[in-house]
């Protein structure tokens, strides 16, 4: 038996609030692993991703759900993607690496980011105050993803539904980011 035990405490763990027309919460146990496509090995890597997740890696700026609906593949750039899924233990990276069988480079990004889910009829109105990306459904459809800057903080925004967005921002500044989103909700309520 080890003498000491570690407890997990992500910066926004347990946050879940409802406002007038907006719900804001930190998803539980969200794991993120980055996938880099080897130069010259892109075809093999995309094939491995497809066979592991039952879905083809989409174009940059897009995301898709895996066939079983449990993982989201987000293409960030020509040679980089994230796979986002629910996974409680700190071994998300080996878990993904195993599925890809060495066809791509993987790096654990779970603790690099802090996630917030914002949803509801007024979610877009609140995000207008910090997000320079056009979030109109015609311009940013379900599954669309963009890395941008909100209140000076690098953010990955993904539309996960009609009025629902997943926001990923650096975990060290998670509290400042939460404050920025809450202020936007307050200012537009």
């Amino acid at each position: 038996m080890p003498e000491f035990t570690l407890t997990s405490a992500p910066p926004l763990a347990g946050y879940d609030q409802s406002f007038d027309g907006v719900k804001l919460g930190a998803p539980v146990d969200l794991a993120i692993v980055s996938i880099a496509l080897p130069l010259g090995g892109e075809v093999a890597a995309e094939k491995a991703i497809k066979s592991a997740y039952g879905a083809a890696l989409p174009a940059p700026g897009k995301s898709v759900l895996s066939k079983d609906g449990l993982a989201r593949l987000v293409r960030l750039s020509s040679d980089a993607a994230f796979v986002i899924f629910t996974h409680a233990t700190p071994d998300a990276e080996p878990h993904v690496a195993e599925k890809l069988k060495g066809a791509a480079y993987t790096t654990d990004q779970t603790d690099v980011w802090s996630a917030l889910e914002i949803s509801g009829a007024k979610a877009r109105t609140a995000l207008e105050r910090i997000c320079p990306i056009d979030l109109h459904a015609d311009a940013f459809a379900d599954g669309d993803a963009a890395r941008t800057s909100m209140e000076h903080l690098g953010t990955l925004i993904i539309r996960t539904g009609g009025d629902a967005f997943l926001l990923l921002s650096a975990s060290s500044s998670a509290k400042s980011f939460l404050h920025a989103v809450e202020t936007s909700i307050h200012n537009t309520a």
């Binding site: 980055s34 880099a36 080897p38 040679d79 980089a80 480079y105 790096t107 654990d108 990004q109 779970t110 603790d111 690099v112 980011w113 650096a170 975990s171 060290s172």
Partner: peptide
């Protein structure tokens, strides 16, 4: 391939 893990 490069990726930052500073916060991780």
């Amino acid at each position: 391939h490069l990726i930052s893990t500073t916060d991780g």
